[in-house]
Simulated assay, not measured.
Amino acid sequence: MKGVLSRIGIGSATVDTILPTDTVRAGDSVRAEVHVEGGTTDQEVDAVYFALETEYKSDEGSKDAIIDQWQLTEPFTIEAGEERRFETTIDVPRETPVTTRSTAVEIETGLDISMAVDPGDADYVEVEPTRRTQAVFDALASLGFSLHASSCAATAGSLFTTSTTFVQEFEFRPENGEFAGEVDEVEVVPVFGDDGLAVYVEVDRSAGLLSEVTDADERHTKLTVDAADPEAVEPRLAAAIRDLR
């Protein structure tokens, strides 16, 4: 009877991932410890697996997105009441969205158990931008802009050439400086590729950079960011905004 119950999740093994911090940076790695505790009966675990997940908007509504997924272990048996611990390194891809009020990212840990409900654990993490993306944000702050909103949306039919199914757009508004009273909003979309970071920039267009190509006008440009140096990015960004306003 215990074996039957464990197949529907009652008395089954459990898994818990312990992170040293709930804040990570896109493009960096973080150490983690995985605790697996046996249930009321022995169970065959095919694998301990991870998935890094978020959501994005599409024409069909909100969709779940797996940013990355990987397997931690080979098959093993977890005996009733047994405790096992595994150490691992979680690599956070550059493309991982920055967490904001509208964007959440979670690390899901699961046990792959045949013919049973897979036990799982979900940990929400705060994701900081890559250092190059942060340089863009810092440059915008120096120019008097502050972040107003952000969203993740599907790339299908958009301006971007990327292998990912979605990108994240950030909307900044000027509070002081040269562009206060001159532009309403600057939208930026970081896109990562083999050559590094490309940042698409647009000023004031209501449709936004995530609109379809058929709706796009010429009021956008693209900057390549080679290093995490806000002082190098700022004059180029300022020049682009002047040209686009």
Score class of each variant (00 low, 15 high):
64 D>F: 08
4 V>S: 14
85 R>E: 12
187 E>H: 00
89 T>K: 08
45 V>A: 03
71 Q>Y: 14
87 E>K: 07
57 K>R: 15
242 R>Q: 00
213 V>A: 13
222 K>W: 08
49 Y>S: 14
243 D>M: 10
164 T>A: 11
124 Y>Q: 14
223 L>R: 05
224 T>E: 15
56 Y>P: 03
44 E>M: 11
172 F>M: 06
50 F>A: 10
119 P>M: 01
55 E>Y: 10
203 V>D: 00
77 T>C: 08
81 G>V: 03
150 S>I: 00
181 G>L: 10
203 V>G: 01
197 L>W: 02
4 V>A: 15
6 S>I: 10
219 R>D: 13
97 P>K: 01
178 E>M: 11
52 L>F: 09
29 S>I: 03
234 E>A: 15
165 T>E: 15
105 V>A: 01
25 R>M: 10
221 T>F: 09
223 L>E: 04
26 A>E: 00
234 E>I: 10
73 T>D: 05
51 A>D: 12
74 E>F: 09
103 T>I: 13
35 H>Q: 13
131 R>C: 07
230 P>T: 09
185 E>I: 14
20 P>H: 00
9 G>E: 07
47 A>Q: 09
242 R>Y: 03
62 S>H: 07
185 E>Q: 13
3 G>N: 15
77 T>G: 08
179 F>V: 07
111 L>E: 03
107 I>A: 06
93 P>M: 01
98 V>R: 05
59 D>F: 11
224 T>H: 14
185 E>T: 12
219 R>W: 10
57 K>T: 15
96 T>N: 02
5 L>W: 11
126 E>A: 14
14 T>D: 06
77 T>H: 08
175 E>S: 12
158 S>G: 10
161 T>E: 15
